[in-house]
């Protein structure tokens, strides 16, 4: 189903929604794009993507899980409630929405995580088509359409003065059914709103099937991994900025008579990530780098039949030593 809305009406619609839900929109903070609470402002037009992935709004970098208190001879443990308050996020990109869906089987599978599930079910996902290819990205190579997606509730394509809207879920249908804001549109109008992406790769960088096969074949090739990881400095940038990396650590904070247990991010780039009492299976840097690439293109694929990389390019653009994942994948595909 297709609808359309003008730029100004969209803003009014969001203002109306903010009475019922928390609205997050792209905004600049300290010079960086991120998703912030909506203050009825104009929606930005030149938003490419956020530096910190919106994954952090679902799987938080710092999350209280439970707390305990001891007072007057009693001891009490409370678990942190699952999030419920309704929320709307506008301006998400197709790659990041796909990432949220990729993580769903991880967090809602055998050991369901009430926080991730709660965050997903309380959020209305409003996506926006890309017009420019982000630096370092290779989303189309991993099967993402920058101009279309079904990972949202509603997907917006920008046209002069407004948007053509593709309604995907029932929740999205109800909310965009308000005649005062949205008009009906057609598949024809939707199709003609498709744009040429600026700065895109003319020829696909690699063939994903070959990468997957290469990831399996290359796994035992120590020389290969040593060579490609030589310049890596083991920082966690590529994992902390990645919309699909999801390793975490649990830790406690204690004060007299009370304490809190938290979950925070961890990274396979860190030497201590796999440290155990007598042994560390990933002591060397090349093993850790291999883990990162293999997890995304080999193990995750085996477990969930999809690669765990959405080609957003964050790790490529922000690696301090320009260790380019695209080049590694290209070599694996050979």
């Amino acid at each position: 189903m297709y609808r359309k809305i003008t730029r100004e009406k969209l803003r009014k619609w969001l203002i109306g929604l903010s009475a019922r839900a928390e609205i997050l929109v792209p905004a600049k903070m300290n010079g960086l794009w991120t998703f912030r609470l909506f203050h009825n402002q104009e929606l930005p037009q030149n938003f490419l993507n956020s530096r910190i992935p919106p994954k952090n709004l679902f799987f938080e970098p710092l999350k209280g899980l439970l707390g305990w208190k001891a007072a007057d001879g009693s001891f009490q443990v409370n678990s942190c409630p699952a999030p419920e308050a309704a929320r709307v996020i506008f301006g998400l990109k197709p790659c990041d929405a796909r990432a949220l869906r990729l993580l769903q089987p991880v967090f809602t599978g055998d050991y369901p995580d009430v926080f991730y599930a709660g965050n997903l079910s309380r959020t209305l996902l409003l996506g926006q088509a890309c017009r420019v290819q982000c630096q370092g990205s290779f989303c189309s190579e991993v099967g993402i359409d920058r101009q279309d997606s079904v990972d949202f509730d509603v997907f917006f394509r920008e046209i002069a003065g407004g948007y053509i809207v593709r309604v995907i879920t029932e929740k999205g249908n109800t909310l965009t059914g308000e005649k005062e804001f949205f008009e009906e549109s057609s598949a024809g109008e939707w199709n003609s709103a498709k744009e040429e992406i600026r700065g895109k790769n003319e020829i696909p960088l690699f063939n994903l099937e070959k990468v997957k096969a290469g990831a399996r074949e290359r796994f035992p090739d120590e020389d290969f991994w040593m060579r490609v990881s030589a310049k890596c400095i083991n920082c966690g940038i590529c994992t902390y900025l990645c919309p699909t990396c999801h390793c975490f650590d649990l830790c406690d904070l204690q004060r007299p008579g009370q304490g809190v247990r938290f979950r925070c991010f961890d990274s396979c780039a860190f030497p201590d990530f796999t440290k155990m009492a007598v042994h560390n299976p990933r002591e060397e840097k090349w093993r850790r780098y291999r883990q990162r690439v293999s997890h995304k293109f080999n193990f995750f694929y085996e477990n969930f039949q999809t690669v765990a990389c959405v080609g957003c390019g964050r790790c490529v653009a922000h690696c301090p030593v320009n260790l380019d994942l695209r080049e590694v994948l290209l070599e694996m595909a050979r």
Binding site: N234, C235, F270, D272, P320
Partner: peptide
């Protein structure tokens, strides 16, 4: 508050040469 603790600042720093950092 914004620091995500990726430790890139430490790892890129030539002056931070400890084989095992105290944060670990």
């Amino acid at each position: 508050e914004r620091c995500i603790r990726c430790y890139a600042c430490r790892n890129v720093c030539p002056a931070c040469f400890c084989p095992r950092c105290i944060v670990e």
